[in-house]
Design a protein around this nucleic acid. Sequence first.
DNA 1: TTAACTGTACCGTCTGGACGGTACAGTTAG
DNA 2: CTAACTGTACCGTCCAGACGGTACAGTTAA
Lengths: 183, 183
Amino acid sequence: MMERMARKPVAREAVLDAFESLLIEEGERAATLDAVARLAGVSKGGLLYHFPNKEAMISVLLERLDRLLAEDLAAMAAAPEGAAAFFIKSSVWADTPLDRVFVAATRLAEVAHQETLRRMAAVQASWLELLAADVGPAMAKPVLYMGDGLYFNAMLARGPGGPDPEVGADVESLLTALGRLRG
Amino acid sequence: MMERMARKPVAREAVLDAFESLLIEEGERAATLDAVARLAGVSKGGLLYHFPNKEAMISVLLERLDRLLAEDLAAMAAAPEGAAAFFIKSSVWADTPLDRVFVAATRLAEVAHQETLRRMAAVQASWLELLAADVGPAMAKPVLYMGDGLYFNAMLARGPGGPDPEVGADVESLLTALGRLRG
DNA sequence: TTAACTGTACCGTCTGGACGGTACAGTTAG
DNA sequence: CTAACTGTACCGTCCAGACGGTACAGTTAA
C-alpha cells in the first residue's frame, strides 16, 4: 500500500491532546497557542502547520467529541441497568477520553463559543431522549439535571491540582433517588 | 447630615453593573476594563479611580454576592413550602439581582478564579445544609444537583440574546420529582 | 542507481493588536 | 475647596497569526 504521507504527523495528535489538557486543567484562557505548542513539545510554527488557526483546532476537538459521544450514546441505549442508571454513573469524572473532551468542550461553552454551544445543546437533547425512553418523559429532566449537577459541582470543585472529592457516596444517593423517581 | 462626598459616585455602581452584565452576556473574556468602562458610560480613567485594578472590581462583586445570598438563605430557611421547593423554584433564571451576581460569579469560577471558587463552594455547602434539614441528609444532594443542573443548562442555552427556554414545565417536573424523593 | 525534484512536516522569528495598568493634567459640581 | 470624574498618552506583556525558512521521505527520469 502506498504511503501518501512522507512522515507520520505525530505533532497533530500531540497538539490536540495538549489543547484538551490545558482546557481541562487551566481553563480556556490558559489554552493559548503558545502554551499548547509548548505542552505538546512542538514549535508554534509546527502547530500552525496542522491547524491554520485556533478555530480549526477547536473544530477538530469537537469532531473528537462527536465521535466519542456517539459511542457513549450507543452504550447508554444498550445498558442492561437502564439508560438512566448508566447516565448517572457516567456523570462522574473518570478521566476517560470522553470525559476529557467533554470537559474541554464545556470550557469552550463557558466562554460562549457558539459552535460548541450548539453541539452541547444537541448532546443534552440526545441524552434526554434516551432518558425519557427509560424513566418516562416526566422524569427525564429531573434525572438529566441530577447528572448535570453532579458534573457541574465536580467542575467547580477543581482547584489547581485539586483532589477529586469522594463522589462515590453521591452517586449512591443519586441512584437511590433514581429508584424513587421510577416509583 | 453632612455630605462627605462632593458628588455621588454614580460611576461606581454603573461600573459594577456593567461588569456584571458583560460577564453574564458575553463571558469573562469580553469583560475587559475598556469594555466595562464603555458599557458603563464611564471613562477608563474614571473606572480606575474607583477600582485600582480588576481584582478589586471582582472582590466588590463578590461582596455583592455575599450580601444578596445571605438574604436568599434567610428566605429559604423561612420558606413555608419548604427549603427544597424554594430552592428548586429559585434555581430558575429570573433576572433578579441575585441571579445576576450569581451567574456573573459563575463565569469567574469557570476561569478558575480562586477566591470565587472558594465562595461558590461555601454557598453550595450552605444550601446543602438547609436542604438536608428539609428533605434529610440522604436526599439533599440529589435535590441540590437537580437545581444546579437546571442552572447549568440555562447557562449553556444562552446564545447571543437567546430566548430563555420555557423552564416553567421543567420546574413543575422537578417539584413532582421532589415530592417522590420526599415520599 | 542516482541526481533532480516535489510535497509534507516541521522550526524560529516577527508583527500588529489587545489588554491591564500608570500617570497626570484638566473639568464639573456639591 | 474638594471629591468625582474626563481624556489622553503611554508602557510592558501577551497573544493570534503570518512568514520564511529547513529537513527529509518519496517520486521521477536519465
